[in-house]
Design a protein around this nucleic acid. Structure first.
Length: 902
DNA sequence: ACTCTGCCAAGAGGA
């Protein structure tokens, strides 16, 4: 049976005499079942067990032999899993112990990457450094990736030369940045591929050989995830681009393959042999060196190795549990030969960490150090929240999924078709009414219904209607699609903080940490925008900033126009500009504004499907001739990318004079740093009175850098105070509540606009709707996160407006919950969306559904900034639909009602 | 208790 629970107490290791001789053991008390939702069997009722202070049943587990190593790492509060535990009686009480087949897993919900286990085996500090500083763009990685892709292509039966040519071309941009020509790389890859082909030709590839490439593996039991290069007859094959002339595979390579074998074992496919393919072991080297030149080295994978993998994985999980920092002394590693030695010493020196390699340089000032620790911890909390999302993959039953929208289940496979490049297009029928947060273009996990224990492939969604179409490397029976959680944002946040604090210049840090005021050159008298003083002032501030400028843009104040004007002014002064924002949509909007102002000398970096159709012509392709691709990027005076893309390996190689970041109030500090790290100066544009960053955990990432700086350095900011969107009546509440009354209509026309301007016959509307702001209480009640009566009334209101002559396209409906959005969506064809997703856009008529009835309980109502967004989307008519009693129960909402009912 | 956009991911190398 599997035993799992929260650790309450851990004993020291001790030795006892048994019938087999002297053995060591350690005892752990756990409170069973409380933690996680992993695969647990029932545990005895605990009636005879000891209890803790709260009177809860405790269970004692004895960890024998080498598992005392894990007991040594265990701490109260950690989650512990013992597989195949043996139950026995001791002094009349049931106790548990590890048996021959048992594994002991610490914090199984913390998913450790197989490659992280590999680097930890080399040196725990290498694991830490990789995580902190990210792996920079370098040739071995790029070439290694190409060789791996070609290997996969070969296994799928593709022509070698075609594969090499295409895969090298795909890496064009990266190779260009590294200064390589396509032909020299092709030649080199061909040499590696020759070793692969030679090995495959040795009769190894027979009918019985069943090959699979790129196998995604996740283990809920062992808390391990990774992707095996290939499986041959169900056993892991790991490809290495380097050489190894010794007879045995390198230890860390064996560990990597063994980790995949462990996860395969869990799926009931015992893999007792691993193969390592060192593709640089070729006959060409014969005259230079002696040694074992065959590229393939097989080794047997026994229980001892598998247990070692789990114990090593436990070391990582235990270290991450209390965000400890490894020193390198844990390993037998030899720093002298380590490629990371310099980085290791610099990081140790700057962060004042103990390290086997030693330290160089001065430690960071105390405030920076404190900041680093705080943000590091917050980012790691986010990582854990991401891991929690993986758990959804193995919570299988339909009942458990009823309220979950992270997966589409119950798909009926329709078709599997091989497409270009030996890839597959899979089609299935979507059950009626199935909703999920999956969207076209997303990468996700396609499976036969069981994404963890069954067959799963990473795929990309091409079509998501009644029919679901995805593309994948291998065919899979398409019965289920899951969101595949990614740690990428978390990883990039961490490297951004690393770059800012450890690599960033001290001048920049002086202003960020308030040790110096932001500086400006002598203020120019130039006029950039002649009909709006605040906008003009914003451009001047941005142009004159020697450190940074902040542009505060409330709803409808022409932020995007101002951004484009700033970019043009900066480029005219000879600056190279990075134009960034949190979302793809905002980046494209800014580019559109630039184009509208006649400027098109920009390059758009990012993934193709994130970029809007009309901006595709600016998209920097990564495939092609290395020199061409790199020239397109480096020659561009303006590069536009999301802040997430700014943290990519390619963008980390770029530098700019100025970074301009839109939606800065929706960005975490590390998110903002990813963009501004690339530039000498920066301009942040945002509105901290609208939605803040969305983070999974409650932590220090919730405040944006924009908000922090605007409080710390108001003199470096300008507020755009003229809005071009809302009528006077609509904007009044927001202006008074959020902008100290400073927000005003830009013109009399804006202030006085009415539905009649659209040719609508206002007299055809019922009395309350003739006022630009109206409140309606339909007497509905909240059911979960919906309010069906309210939804019905909203749909009727839409009909009323349409009947009076308003175009359906001019109407928008906003609700706080996605469930209510769906509820309303069933009843109308106009745009319905959550507040969060409506931010940044507007409609002539907006209807807001509040859902709540009776009381206003719930976090969604607590953040008034969300309401500010909802109330400022309408131009000419705003209708609030909700329960008056609920809204009056809170002073803020009561004031809102008073305004709406005036 | 809710809200949710980005990222294709997990990678490679070497005494």
């Amino acid at each position: 049976m599997n035993l799992r629970g929260r650790i309450v107490e851990v004993s020291d290791e001790r030795e006892v005499e048994t019938q087999y001789g002297t053995r060591s053991l350690a005892e752990v008390s756990i409170r069973p079942g409380a933690a996680g939702d992993g695969p647990i069997d029932a545990v005895g009722d605990g009636s005879a067990d000891t209890t803790d202070a709260d009177g809860d049943a405790l269970v004692r587990v004895t960890l024998w032999g080498k598992w005392t190593h894990t007991a040594d790492l265990a701490e109260p509060g950690m989650d512990l899993l013992v597989t195949d535990a043996e139950e026995s009686e001791y002094r009349g009480e049931p106790t548990y112990s590890t048996a021959k087949e048992s594994y002991v897993v610490l914090e199984p919900d913390f998913l450790v990457d197989v490659t992280d286990i590999r680097s930890w085996v080399q040196c725990p500090r290498m694991y830490y450094l990789n995580k902190l500083s990210g792996i920079p763009l370098n040739y071995p990685v790029v070439k290694g990736t190409i060789v791996h892709e070609v290997f996969g292509d070969l296994l799928r039966g593709r022509d070698l030369d075609d594969a090499i040519e295409e895969r090298v071309a795909e890496a064009g941009l990266q190779l260009g940045l590294l200064g390589y020509d396509a032909t020299e790389v092709e030649d080199e890859v061909r040499r590696n591929a020759a070793a692969i082909e030679g090995w495959l030709a040795q009769g190894t590839l027979t009918e019985e050989d069943e090959w699979r490439s790129e196998y995604t593996l996740i283990s809920p039991t062992f808390g391990i995830k990774g992707r095996a290069d290939a499986l041959r007859r169900g056993m892991p094959v790991e490809l290495k681009t380097g050489k190894n002339l010794k007879r045995d595979p390198r230890f860390q390579d064996k560990i990597q393959a063994a980790a995949y074998a462990l996860v395969l074992d869990e799926r009931g496919v015992p893999a007792n042999t691993g193969t390592l393919l060192y593709t640089k072991n070729t006959a060409l080297e014969r005259h230079e060196e002696s040694g074992d030149l065959s590229p393939a080295k097989e080794f047997s994978i026994g229980n001892g190795l598998l247990e070692f993998v789990v114990r090593t994985r436990n070391e990582i999980a235990a270290m991450e549990f209390d965000t400890a920092v490894p020193t390198g002394f844990e390993a037998d590693a030899n720093c002298e030969y380590c490629f990371e030695q310099d980085t290791c010493m610099v990081v140790s020196g700057r962060l004042d960490q103990e390290s086997k390699a030693g330290k160089i340089g001065k430690p960071l000032p105390e405030d920076e150090r404190e900041y680093f620790d705080r943000i590091y911890r917050a980012i790691e909390e986010e990582r854990r929240e991401t891991h929690a999302e993986y758990r959804k993959l193995w919570e299988q039953s339909a009942a458990e999924r009823a309220d979950d929208d992270r997966a589409l289940i119950g798909l009926e496979p329709l078709d599997q078709r091989e497409i270009e490049g030996q890839r597959w297009e899979l089609t299935a029928k979507k059950p009626d009414g199935a909703v999920s947060k999956l969207r076209e273009g997303d990468v996700c996990l396609a499976s036969n219904g069981d994404p963890v224990g069954g067959h799963a492939e990473l795929c990309r969604i091409r079509e998501l209607g009644d029919r679901v179409v995805v593309t994948a490397d291998e065919p899979v029976e398409l019965r289920r699609l899951d969101v595949y959680p990614s740690e990428i944002s978390v990883s990039r946040m961490l490297t951004a903080v690393h770059d800012a604090l450890l690599k960033g210049d001290s001048d920049r840090k002086d202003v960020l940490f308030g040790r110096r005021d932001p500086a400006f050159t002598e203020r120019s008298e130039a006029t950039y925008i002649d009909n709006n003083d605040a906008q003009n002032e914003a451009v001047k501030l941005a142009v004159d900033a020697e450190d940074f400028a902040l542009v505060h843009g409330p709803p409808g104040t022409g932020k995007t126009y101002t951004i484009a004007r700033i970019v043009r002014a900066l480029v005219a002064d000879g600056n190279r500009v990075l134009l960034s924002a949190f979302t793809n949509r905002a980046v494209d909007n800014a580019l559109e504004a630039l184009r509208d102002q006649g400027f098109a000398d920009a390059v758009r970096v990012g993934t193709e499907n994130g970029i809007r159709e009309d901006m595709q012509d600016l998209h920097l392709k990564t495939t092609g001739d290395p020199n061409d691709r790199v020239a397109e990027l480096t020659d561009a005076p303006v590069v536009a990318a999301t802040t997430s893309s700014c943290g990519s390996r390619v963008m980390r190689e770029q530098s700019f004079d100025v970074a301009l970041v839109d939606e800065a109030s929706q960005l975490t500090e590390p998110g903002t740093l990813a963009a501004i790290n690339r530039a000498d100066r920066f301009v942040l544009v945002g509105d901290h009175e609208q939605l803040p960053p969305v983070v999974r955990a409650e932590n220090d990432l919730q405040q944006s850098l924009f908000e922090r700086l605007i409080d710390a350095a108001p003199e470096a900011s300008v507020m755009l105070d003229r809005q071009y969107r809302m009528s006077q009546r609509i904007q009044a509440f927001s202006s008074a509540e959020f902008y100290d009354g400073a927000l005003r209509p830009a013109t009399g026309e804006v202030a006085a606009q009415r539905l009649s301007d659209l040719g609508v016959d206002e007299s055809a509307l019922p009395e309350p709707l003739r006022d630009p702001v109206a409140f309606i209480d339909p007497n509905g009640s909240r059911v979960g996160n919906t309010n069906p009566v309210e939804a019905e009334r909203v749909a009727e209101l839409v009909e009323t407006f349409v009947a009076a002559g308003v175009e359906p396209d001019d109407i928008g409906v906003i609700a706080p919950f996605r469930a209510q959005v769906a509820e309303i969506g069933k009843r109308t064809d106009v745009t319905v969306d959550t507040v969060d997703r409506f931010q940044g856009s507007s409609k002539e008529v907006v209807i807001v559904s509040f859902v709540a009835s009776g009381t206003l309980d719930g976090p969604i109502f607590e953040d008034h900034r969300r309401i500010n967004v909802a109330l400022t989307r309408a131009k000419k008519s705003l209708v609030l639909v909700g329960d008056a009693n609920a809204l009056e129960s809170d002073p803020f909402y009561a004031r809102m009602l008073e305004w709406a009912r005036r």
